[in-house]
Amino acid sequence: MLEIKNIYKAFGNNEVLKGVSLKVEKGDVVVILGPSGSGKTTLLRSIDFLEKADAGEIIFDDIHAEFARISKKTISQIRKKTAFVFQNYNLFHNKTALQNVTEGLIIARKLPKEKAIEIGKRALDKVGLSERYDYYPSQLSGGQQQRVGIARAIAVNPDIILFDEPTSALDPELIGEVLGVMKELAKEGTTMIVVTHEMHFAQDVANRVVFMDGGRVVEEGTPDEMFSRPKEERTRQFLRRILPDFDYVI
């Protein structure tokens, strides 16, 4: 469904992505792991054109384009098929929870207002915020804000949702409610790419785990393969550091 081929991206002299390829099928939950600075965020942002990648190809259903020569029209087509959930929520501060969700529907997708509100309410219900339609972001907890962020993403009915560390700005006691919503989405067959440090989420929910380091994909496989039988030494080092009780089968 979505395929990224050999994507390159440098910030000045700093090469951040050095030929990353990634293939996502419909219904996949792909978790991307990797140490800080390995280029995970940059990869996700490049897929949604928040960063302009220097080279590489993107194939999205019947769209086939090169990052270096992509037209505004293609960008907008691909953005219509994707949604992004940010680490720091990025809600519109001047809009209520419901308006945050309906804004894209009404303004970008030109849905009639009543229809948008109906969809928006359904999305907020789904993330457990039926009581918070008219709250402004400043009146919501971090977990609630992030759930609005997820509602905003699912409301546009995207083919794929990109999550960039959706829980890492949250207090520990709020992480569960957000992961719970994401698990629910996964169960319903939502296609997602998730950058996260939540290993349990990776183990339980992902059907593919990708380990990135230094701007490259070092290794990828099923959670079982990756967590019990990682092939690469760098993967093992990373897992040992992040999972104190990590114990792999040789």
Partner: peptide
Amino acid sequence: ETALTIGMT
């Protein structure tokens, strides 16, 4: 950025 990702100009 959010606005752009949800398709706004």
